[in-house]
């Protein structure tokens, strides 16, 4: 049993655009993406929408619904009161291509600059077993970060670049902080990314205000489990005089390798 619902959808491209009003029938149990598809099939064939899985697994359908950064395929219409005019707009932080589709290439460019995984060589025992031997408790922490579906909602909501375009040059964004965290905490990895994180990726720009964590559809504790531990690791290397002294006299070891 369908009910007529009202929507305001941003339509346009880099040259300009505006909100357009539509009335669309909505069925029980539907999500915002369903409505955009119905709109596309029936009233606006050329409405640009990016999506893939419609199950919250691919992270393609990021947009802002009533101003909240969210996955359209996981935002149920029943969350809004029936008389609400639902606003749907493209994510703000990245250049718009058309309608709800934005150019997220910023993120792919950052990804290229990350120091890749550099595993240590296998031990004799491992060679025999034919695989690395890893304890589950050593990877539990990393598996949380590996859940990331690269929806870039955290990148979009982060005020460091959302409100300051010029910071894009010096800031990698929360998605890539947790990517670095995952590599830095990896029991096999041998590289050191802390200087790059602080100097090039702008870890210091993050003021841990946690909006990234609030919007993450995978519920990753980006700030608490990723960014803050990274900041602490940077402190170890750069801002802790006692630790620094300890290393100088050969007293303390780099604990990450232990």
């Amino acid at each position: 049993m369908a009910t007529e619902r009202r929507f305001r959808v941003w339509r346009g491209d880099a040259k300009g655009g505006d909100f357009h009003d539509y009335t669309v029938p909505v069925e029980e149990g539907e999500v915002v993406l369903d409505v955009m598809h119905r709109l596309q099939a029936q009233q606006a064939n050329d409405l640009a929408v990016r999506w893939n899985c419609k199950a919250g697994k691919c992270g393609s359908c990021s947009a802002e619904v009533n101003g909240h950064p969210t996955l359209m395929c996981m935002t149920r219409m029943s969350d809004f009161p029936p008389d609400d005019v639902v606003t749907v707009s493209p994510i703000r932080t990245f250049p718009v291509i058309r309608d709800l589709v934005t150019d997220v290439s910023f993120n792919y460019e950052v990804a290229k600059r990350i120091v890749p995984f550099q595993p240590r060589p296998m031990t004799e025992e491992e060679k025999e077993a034919g695989s690395y031997l890893l304890a589950q408790e050593d990877i539990d922490r990393l598996q949380e970060f590996r859940k990331c579906i690269e929806c870039f909602l955290c990148q979009n909501v982060c005020h460091v670049i959302r409100d300051h375009e010029e910071n894009k040059r010096n800031f990698a964004g929360p998605r890539f902080f947790i990517r670095n965290a995952e590599l830095e905490m990896h029991p096999l990895d041998t590289a050191d990314r802390r200087d790059q994180l602080q100097d090039e990726f702008g870890l210091g720009y993050c003021n841990i205000t946690k909006c990234c964590t609030e919007v993450c559809p995978e519920g990753i504790h980006i700030t608490d489990n990723g960014i803050i531990p990274l900041k602490e690791r940077v402190v170890d290397k750069r801002y802790d005089p006692i630790a620094w002294l300890g290393r100088k006299i050969g007293f303390a070891k780099d604990q990450r390798r232990l």
């Binding site: 995984f117 695989s131 690395y132 031997l133 890893l134 304890a135 589950q136 990877i139 990393l142 598996q143």
Partner: peptide, 15 residues
């Protein structure tokens, strides 16, 4: 796994 994938482990550390 050598490329960085992290599979769930058995008690003795294998996949």
């Amino acid at each position: 796994e050598t490329m960085g994938a992290l599979f769930d482990r058995t008690r003795d550390g294998r996949v």
